Amino acid sequence: MKDLQEILAIARQVAWGAADILKSYYHGTAKDPNLNVQYQQNEPVTVADVAVSQYILEELQAALGNEDFGYISEETYKSRRDTQPDNPPWVWIIDPLDGTRDFIDKTGDYAVHIALVQETRPVLAVVAVPEAEKLYYATKGGGTFVETHNGSIPLQLSSNKQVKDLIVVVSRSHRNERLNHLLKNLPCQNQKAVGSVGCKIAAILEQQADVYISLSNKTAPKDWDIAAPELILTEAGGKFTHFDGTFLQYNTGDISQWGGLLASNSQYHEVLCKEAEKVLAELSN
């Protein structure tokens, strides 16, 4: 197998290519710009999702092959499950278009997620934000960088706010009563609406926000929503855990990330996790 830096270079190149394809659909310059929106389990899927998924899988497999890696992509997960061994030790977890609703609604908050997971934890991640023309990337123990067309610079989070001044980045569409109740009862009440988990975590990396909370209801975020954003946040000094402080696990056979998840710039992370558990415990009494 190639070394991690070689693999990262390939993943970055593929992510930039994927971003260009998405922008062509987003701005109506694709050969056929009709998005042909379909709904699966109440979630929209467009021809852009499918085209970019196919592009990423073909490019990664052409460069790296199938022998060393499994592949889990949002658009092909169901159809590919039977064609690869269960839980291979190295697996690519891919979201070709995170934030499809925002893509359709033209908010600009959409991203490409590509993560490489070893066993159950991410070791390499790329998150491209096409409309910002930025690509965030990280390797385990190697730090986080942001790449533009002018080159790359390292990112390191820092914050000296008081807890009440923290900004919580929230979803425009994925909301439920328990989450709304939790958000209303946290010590930080400043909120910023951003689509796509990748764009939410980018907002924390860019220090435009400090905290992101996910609370599953009938559905939960999937591995491909979280794996790449988690690593780019934690390698920049942030934290991304369950409310009880345990790490997230990927490639476990269950692609859903159930329960409460909290991502932050690490300041007050444990305080907010404990507060979230307390609020939810009171709600269920």
Score class of each variant (00 low, 15 high):
residue 18 A to G: 14
residue 273 C to Y: 02
residue 278 K to M: 03
residue 112 V to D: 02
residue 155 L to N: 00
residue 27 H to Q: 14
residue 247 F to Q: 15
residue 29 T to K: 05
residue 56 I to A: 01
residue 157 L to N: 09
residue 158 S to E: 11
residue 166 L to G: 01
residue 52 V to D: 06
residue 216 S to I: 09
residue 4 L to I: 15
residue 113 H to N: 15
residue 7 I to Q: 05
residue 207 Q to L: 07
residue 244 D to C: 01
residue 49 D to I: 01
residue 189 Q to M: 02
residue 51 A to D: 12
residue 278 K to Y: 03
residue 56 I to G: 02
residue 66 N to A: 05
residue 139 T to Y: 06
residue 48 A to Q: 04
residue 161 K to D: 14
residue 81 R to H: 10
residue 33 P to N: 10
residue 23 K to W: 00
residue 199 C to P: 12
residue 155 L to M: 12
residue 23 K to F: 09
residue 85 P to I: 14
residue 218 K to Q: 11
residue 138 A to N: 08
residue 69 F to N: 00
residue 285 N to E: 05
residue 100 T to C: 06
residue 216 S to D: 01
residue 126 V to Q: 06
residue 66 N to I: 07
residue 43 E to M: 01
residue 41 Q to C: 06
residue 213 I to A: 00
residue 205 L to R: 01
residue 77 Y to T: 12
residue 216 S to R: 03
residue 204 I to S: 02
residue 185 N to L: 02
residue 269 H to T: 09
residue 249 Q to R: 13
residue 50 V to R: 12
residue 275 E to P: 05
residue 85 P to V: 14
residue 204 I to R: 03
residue 186 L to Y: 03
residue 230 E to F: 00
residue 44 P to G: 05
residue 1 M to Q: 06
residue 269 H to Y: 11
residue 9 A to K: 15
residue 184 K to H: 01
residue 157 L to I: 13
residue 125 A to V: 02
residue 177 E to M: 01
residue 157 L to D: 07
residue 267 Q to Y: 05
residue 106 K to F: 09
residue 209 A to W: 10
residue 92 W to Q: 08
residue 113 H to W: 11
residue 167 I to V: 15
residue 112 V to M: 09
residue 119 E to D: 15
residue 177 E to Q: 07
residue 183 L to N: 09
residue 127 V to S: 07
residue 38 Q to G: 11
residue 200 K to Y: 05
residue 223 D to G: 07
residue 32 D to F: 11
residue 94 I to D: 10
residue 190 N to I: 05
residue 92 W to P: 06
residue 254 D to A: 06
residue 98 D to Y: 09
residue 225 D to G: 07
residue 13 Q to R: 15
residue 10 I to R: 05
residue 147 E to M: 06
residue 271 V to H: 10
residue 64 L to K: 09
residue 32 D to K: 11
residue 74 E to M: 00
residue 195 G to Y: 07
residue 182 L to A: 08
residue 66 N to W: 13
residue 202 A to W: 00
residue 186 L to W: 09
residue 215 L to T: 00
residue 218 K to L: 00
residue 248 L to P: 08
residue 190 N to T: 11
residue 45 V to Y: 13
residue 84 Q to E: 14
residue 56 I to V: 12
residue 85 P to S: 12
residue 227 A to K: 02
residue 146 V to I: 12
residue 253 G to V: 03
residue 57 L to N: 11
residue 170 V to F: 07
residue 66 N to R: 12
residue 270 E to K: 10
residue 172 R to V: 04
residue 228 A to I: 03
residue 190 N to E: 14
residue 60 L to D: 08
residue 121 R to S: 13
residue 144 T to H: 08
residue 235 E to P: 07
residue 183 L to T: 06
residue 238 G to W: 07
residue 195 G to Q: 05
residue 258 W to L: 03
residue 211 V to I: 13
residue 143 G to Q: 10
residue 65 G to V: 09
residue 21 I to C: 02
residue 1 M to R: 13
residue 238 G to F: 04
residue 57 L to P: 07
residue 44 P to E: 04
residue 159 S to K: 10
residue 61 Q to H: 14
residue 241 T to W: 06
residue 191 Q to V: 01
residue 101 R to M: 12
residue 112 V to H: 04
residue 107 T to M: 13
residue 25 Y to L: 06
residue 181 H to K: 05
residue 130 P to D: 03
residue 265 N to H: 12
residue 275 E to K: 05
residue 69 F to R: 07
residue 92 W to S: 06
residue 46 T to H: 04
residue 262 L to Q: 00
residue 221 P to T: 02
residue 54 Q to G: 01
residue 45 V to M: 14
residue 267 Q to V: 11
residue 79 S to G: 03
residue 213 I to W: 06
residue 35 L to N: 03
residue 36 N to H: 13
